[in-house]
Computed example of a mutant assay.
Amino acid sequence: MTQTTLRRDAVLPPPVQTSAPPRRGAGRVSRWQIYVPLTLYLLFTLVPFYWMVVFAFRPRGSDSLLPWPITLENFDTVWNGLGFGIFFQNSLLVGLASLVATTVIALSGGYALARYSFRGKQLFLIALLCTQFIPGAMMLIPLFEIFRTLGLVNTLWSLVIAETVFQLPLSLILLSGFIKNIPMELEEAAWVDGCSRLRAFFAVVLPLLRPALVAVGSFAFINSWNNFLFALMFVSEQEKFTIPVGLAYTLGEFSVDFGALAAGGVVAALPVVLVFAVIQRYLVQGMSAGAVKG
């Protein structure tokens, strides 16, 4: 019995030395470390918007901290008196046209970059990245000369072309990265079933590109909507102004109508806020998927 007991004890594993239990609260982040920075960030971000809304909705001459009593007089002045209805229409046309042109061109170019191998492909991608470091102000004179030669100065088409050209590099990179993540086997299966390459693209690839297309289109629209420099330099007639240029012309030489300026700011910001609220889920998905190397 003694030998059996010793033999069993001999094959037992050595005792495991456990580390000391972690101290209470170690590695945990307290609530104030989260809420205080977030509160400061929200204050820094939302306070200007709050004051814009207050000035836009409160009566002229009032110094109340709340927009009460609410009045739409400033919006009537901006929309009818200053012609913001026409500015809004021009911005909408330029934004939608830039969205369609950028998305269509970037879709075809992104597919070519993702699926085909050709000489100079890496050099082309490097050139696309390098264009992101060129400020738009440096291209004003060359673009103005080109548009003057083509007879496009003082037309909305000049804004559409300029916005599309400046949006294309980033859009091409995003869409090509997203298409690389789509397995080639899906298209090959469609080819085996008798689909042409174009039909397989529309039937298989295009439905999977919805988040990327939303991301690219929304960025193209918002950047076109907010652009001030091109609209200021290429358009001189008031009937063809966009909203950013119209906001600049609300500033008088000796006085500023803060109520009208704030109402114009609300009109300019509202479409952008609505777009982001609707497409934020697709936007995050499209950006993250396009940033992953396939």
Rank of each mutant, 00 (worst) to 15 (best):
M1R: 10
M1Y: 10
M1W: 08
L6R: 13
R7E: 15
R8C: 09
D9R: 12
V11N: 08
P14L: 15
V16W: 07
Q17K: 12
A20K: 11
A20M: 12
P21L: 13
R24V: 12
R24I: 11
G27W: 06
V29S: 12
S30R: 15
R31K: 09
W32R: 12
Q33P: 04
I34K: 12
P37C: 04
L40N: 02
L43P: 01
F44K: 04
T45D: 11
V47Q: 10
Y50T: 05
W51M: 11
W51Q: 10
M52H: 02
M52W: 03
V53D: 11
F55R: 01
A56V: 08
R60M: 13
G61W: 07
G61K: 06
S64G: 13
P67S: 03
P67V: 00
W68K: 06
L72D: 13
D76E: 15
D76Y: 09
T77K: 13
T77D: 15
V78N: 01
N80A: 15
G83L: 02
Q89Y: 07
L92F: 09
V94E: 01
A97N: 03
S98R: 01
L99C: 07
A101V: 07
T103F: 00
T103I: 05
V104K: 05
S108L: 14
Y111M: 08
A112M: 09
A114V: 00
Y116V: 00
Q122C: 03
I126W: 06
C130F: 10
T131M: 04
I134V: 15
G136M: 10
M138N: 10
L140P: 00
I141D: 09
P142C: 05
E145R: 13
E145V: 07
T149E: 14
L150V: 03
G151H: 03
V153T: 14
T155M: 02
L156F: 05
S158T: 11
L159M: 08
V160A: 00
I161M: 09
E163W: 03
T164W: 00
V165S: 15
V165C: 14
F166M: 14
F166T: 01
S171Q: 04
I173F: 14
I173K: 03
I173D: 11
L174V: 15
F178N: 01
I179A: 15
I179F: 14
N181A: 13
P183L: 05
P183G: 03
M184W: 07
M184T: 14
E185T: 14
E188S: 08
A189C: 11
A190R: 10
V192F: 06
D193N: 08
D193S: 09
C195L: 14
F202I: 06
L208C: 11
P211E: 10
L213S: 10
L213K: 06
G217M: 01
G217R: 00
G217H: 01
F221C: 08
N223V: 04
S224A: 15
W225H: 02
F228V: 09
L229V: 01
A231Y: 00
A231G: 05
M233A: 14
F234P: 01
V235M: 03
E239W: 02
K240Y: 11
K240D: 06
K240N: 12
F241H: 09
F241N: 11
P244Q: 03
V245L: 07
L247R: 02
Y249M: 12
T250P: 05
L251A: 14
A260L: 02
G264W: 01
G265T: 04
V267S: 00
A268E: 05
P271Y: 01
A277V: 11
A277N: 08
A277K: 02
I279P: 02
L283V: 00
G294Q: 10
